[in-house]
């Protein structure tokens, strides 16, 4: 499978000269399988450019929403294939204990927040995302709840022996110093274990995190330690803080070291082959 990053920013889109290389659009990753399945992880503002670049839109597109915070759904209403009669868009997202994904998502895709109602989009099918396994085309997807305010999923995608793990919003350190430190008691471990490519939340420096405990995100250092513990091959930092410039992210990324994991900053436009 191939992954392409269309949005890497966290919390709020941030355009301008300081965010050109890492990108200012919020979370959106395109997955293309070897059998031409089209999967999109999250529908942040990056999905606008993705939609515009689909020269020949496929008949079916599957969008997996990790959770329903605004930076992960705000691009949804601007995704052109939603309005195409030739495309069926399947949207998968977490239900709550009492409401299905349609009810939850309709809060955004309805007036006064958005002019078009979700129910008026005929080419959309909604699915409550199961906790466990599902298959979309040739890709096996494992989902599991991870530590982040609200109901949030991590995704593990497998095809032809390759594994991509995606945890855009994930607070590893909640509850104690020194975390992550034990696979059995570390959120997201089963999603990331042995992955070829891990796309992981690395929003804060240590000092920033000290002021933002419980906000749902990890530090650069925690992300590296987690990647090492899970024995992943390569990790991309993701969900960049809106206040972090390209120059700052260059500096921090260069300071990250691991003897076992290849580490890189997640940049918009980045493409990665995973598996055969």
């Amino acid at each position: 499978m191939r992954a392409r990053l269309w949005g890497t920013r966290g919390s709020l889109a941030r355009s301008g000269p300081a965010t050109i290389r890492y990108g200012g659009d919020t979370a959106c990753v395109q997955i293309s399988s070897t059998t031409d399945d089209h999967i999109i992880l999250d529908a942040g503002s990056g999905i606008l450019a993705l939609g515009e670049n689909l020269i020949e839109p496929p008949e079916r597109i599957d969008i997996l929403l990790s959770h329903l915070h605004m930076d992960h759904i705000q691009g949804l209403g601007f995704f052109q294939p939603l309005y195409s009669p030739d495309v069926m868009v399947h949207i998968w997202g977490p239900a709550s204990a009492t409401e299905d994904i349609r009810t939850r998502l309709s809060r955004y895709l309805s007036p006064p927040l958005f002019p078009v109602r979700l129910r008026d989009l005929s080419g959309v099918e909604l699915h409550d995302l199961p906790r466990g396994e599902l298959e979309i085309g040739s890709i096996k997807i494992t989902t599991d709840s991870i530590s982040h305010p609200g109901h949030t999923f991590g995704f593990r995608l497998e095809e032809n022996g390759g594994v991509l793990a995606y945890m855009s919003d994930h607070e590893l350190g909640l509850g104690g110093a020194g975390l992550p430190n034990d696979p059995q008691w570390t959120s997201g471990y089963c999603i990331a274990e042995g992955a070829d490519l891990l796309i992981h939340d690395a929003q804060y420096t240590d000092d920033e995190y000290a002021e933002r405990i419980g906000w749902g995100h990890s530090t650069f250092k925690q992300a590296v330690e987690f990647a090492e513990m899970a024995e992943v091959r390569k990790m991309l930092t993701f969900h960049h803080d809106p206040s972090h410039s390209d120059a700052f992210l260059d500096e921090v990324t260069a300071s990250l070291h691991s003897n076992t994991v290849e580490i890189a900053g997640g940049m918009v436009g980045g493409q990665f082959e995973v598996g055969a």
Binding site: D144, S145, S147, Q184, S187, Y189
Partner: peptide, 13 residues
């Protein structure tokens, strides 16, 4: 050893 569900992880913390 299998990872615990996130609800159990958060309760332990």
């Amino acid at each position: 050893m299998a990872q615990q569900p996130v609800e159990m992880i958060l309760l332990k913390q």
